[in-house]
Design a protein around this nucleic acid. Structure first.
Length: 260
DNA sequence: ATGTCGTAACGTTTACGA
């Protein structure tokens, strides 16, 4: 099962580029972030025409997540548990049957958190605490599960072309890294780092300052696997070339392959 | 290097979030 995550930065502006990538990469499942659309305005038809089932969890203007899947989406759940008052659409889950096993898929768009310190950073850390609680529940269930999306966390200095530039940023502050690490330390595997070591692997390049041309990127999109999922990992990749195409998102897809 | 996008709004431009 090929599972991809892609922060598309607006479905309205990215529909064509998304469809082009989808046809070429042909993932079984695509977890999308920043659809920036309410559910009713998400264009399901072109995706359904290409054989994908669609589940969205959107809101007006900002945020919003979605799942595309070639196989039916079962037991769809919207919203990250732990705060009924949280109105930001950043989490969606569904179960998809593979050839031999069923996989629980969690798509997430973790808060950016800037400026830090401040209320937005507080919200980020509170959201990460809720993420950890959901992660613990998945482990307790011994679930074959993937939590993938835009984590808005640069885990280590090697995950940035210019780490010094991010030192005071919410994406790299010690508390952000600590919270991310604490999820890994529960027993989750960073799928990309299980397969590829060393610097120079990025999933985001800012639109500003010619970041792409200078390869001034960061690795902030991640796929975290429960032990049951990590056992089945057979491959990972970053579709870097997508960033150089017409009207690109500032993120590119990250994908994993599970023998499920 | 105060650099770019995408979205919404009473919009022919500004505010916000990233």
């Amino acid at each position: 099962m090929k599972i991809a995550t892609f922060n598309i930065n607006g479905i309205k502006a990215r529909q064509a580029a998304l469809l082009d990538w989808l046809e070429a990469a042909a993932p079984d499942v695509a977890l999308l972030q920043e659809i920036k659309s309410v559910d009713g305005n998400f264009p399901t038809e072109p995706f359904e025409a290409r054989g994908y089932h669609v589940a969205t969890h959107g809101q007006k203007g900002f945020n919003g997540v979605a799942i595309l899947s070639k196989r039916p989406l079962e037991d769809v759940s919207r919203g990250l548990p732990g705060d009924e008052a949280d109105e930001q659409a950043r989490w969606i889950e569904a179960t998809v049957a593979g050839e031999s096993r069923r996989v629980r898929l969690c798509g997430l768009y973790l808060p950016n958190g800037n400026p830090a310190p401040g209320p937005k950073y507080d919200y980020k850390l509170a959201w990460m605490a809720r993420l950890k609680a959901r992660a613990e529940a998945l482990l307790a269930d011994e679930a074959l599960a993937v939590m993938a999306g835009d984590y808005n966390v640069i885990p280590q200095d090697e995950d940035a072309a210019r780490p010094a530039a991010w030192r005071a940023d919410a994406l790299a502050l010690p508390d952000s890294r600590r919270a991310f690490r604490s999820v890994l330390n529960l027993g989750f595997t960073d799928a990309f780092r299980a397969r590829v070591q060393g610097p120079g692997h990025y999933t985001f390049w800012d639109y500003q300052a010619g970041a792409w041309d200078r390869d001034d990127g960061i690795r902030i999109d991640h796929a975290l696997l429960t032990p049951q999922a990590a056992d089945l990992l057979t491959g990972v990749g970053i579709d870097r070339d997508v960033r150089g195409r017409e009207k690109p998102s500032d993120h590119v897809p990250l994908w994993i392959e599970l023998d499920a």
